[in-house]
Design a protein around this nucleic acid. Structure first.
Lengths: 149, 149
DNA sequence: GGTTGACCTAAAGTTAGCTTTAGGTATTAT
DNA sequence: ATAATACCTAAAGCTAACTTTAGGTCAACC
C-alpha cells in the first residue's frame, strides 16, 4: 500500500503557506526526497514531517540555510545524531533566553500602560514627571529585572 | 544648569548600537528634538529615553515607521494619550501571544532533545520509529498544546 | 604642517526570505 | 474546442533595517 500524497496547493492550504514559499523551500533543498509524478511535486508524510520541523526551527530563529544543514545531517544517518541533538539543545537555550527577554519587555510595556492610564486620568504628565524626576532610567531598570533571577 | 549631552560615538558604545544605526534612526525622524553643535549631534536625556523606548518597541516587533508614528504622537501632546496607551496595550497582547508560541516551540524542542538522546543511546531510530508508528503528528500536536490552556 | 580621529551627508549596496512575472504544460469543465 | 485551473521554471523584484562607500569638515596632537 502506497502512502497518500498531496499536491503543492493542498499543502499550502494545510500549512497556511503560499505555494511560492513551498517551491522556494524545495529550491533551497529542504525536501531532498520529494517525489514527482510527471513533473508535479507529490508531498508525502516525509515532507509533511519536514514542514513541521521547518516551522519549529524557523520559529526558534534558525535560518533556512541552517535548516538545510540539519536536513543534510538527517541524510547522513546515525553518525550525525550528536550534531542534531546539539542543534536542538542550542535552540532550546536560545528560546529560553528569548522568553526571558520577552518577560522584561512585557514588564516595561505594563509600566507604559500604567503610565498612560495615569496620564489620561490626570489629563497631563505633570504628576508622572514629578514622580520620576530623573526620567525613567532607574524605574525601567527595576522593571526590567522584575520576573528575572 | 544645562543637561549633559553625548556624541553619537558615546551613545553607540553605551547602547551597543552602531553609529550608522543611530544616524539611520535620526534620518527616520526618531529624534525630532535632537540639538546640534556646529553640525554635530548632541544626544541628551530626551534622546536617551527615546532610545530606550525604541529598544522596547522594536523588541515587541514594531517597525521603525510605527515607532516614528508614536514619536509624532508624543509631539502632538495630551490629545494622543489614548492612542499611545492603545499602542502599548496592543504590543502587550502581542508579546503575550509570542510567549505562548515560544512555550509551544520549547515543548517541541524538548521532545526533539529526548528523541536524539534516545537515538544516541540506541544507536539508531528503530525503537523510536516503532514507538511513533504514524510519525510524529499526533505526539507533536499534544506536545504543542502542553503548557497551554 | 601634516596626519589622525571623530564627526558629517547622500546615495548605493546588502541580506534573508519571500513574491511576482513571464512564459509554458496538462487536465478538467462547458 | 476553448477556457479555466493547477501545476511547472527561471529570473527578476521587493522590503526592512541596516551598512558601506565616497567624499568632506574640523580640532587636536607631534
Amino acid at each position: 500500500m502506497s502512502q497518500p500524497t498531496y499536491t503543492i496547493g493542498q499543502i499550502a492550504d494545510k500549512f497556511n503557506l503560499s505555494i511560492s514559499t513551498l517551491r522556494y523551500y524545495d529550491k533551497e533543498g529542504l525536501f531532498p526526497n520529494m517525489k514527482r509524478q510527471s513533473g508535479i511535486r507529490r508531498f508525502s508524510k516525509n515532507e509533511i514531517e519536514t514542514l513541521r520541523l521547518i516551522e519549529c526551527l524557523k520559529a526558534s530563529g534558525l535560518e533556512i540555510k541552517d535548516i538545510k544543514q540539519f536536513i543534510d545531517w538527517t541524510l547522513k544517518g546515525p553518525s550525525t545524531y550528536e550534531q542534531r541533538k546539539q542543534l536542538f539543545e542550542t535552540r532550546k537555550k536560545i528560546i529560553e533566553k528569548e522568553m526571558e527577554r520577552l518577560q522584561k519587555i512585557h514588564n516595561v510595556l505594563e509600566f507604559k500602560c500604567w503610565y498612560y492610564d495615569t496620564a489620561i486620568k490626570d489629563g497631563n504628565e505633570d504628576r508622572l514627571q514629578q514622580m520620576l524626576p530623573d526620567g525613567l532610567p532607574i524605574t525601567i531598570q527595576e522593571l526590567y529585572n522584575k520576573g528575572h533571577k
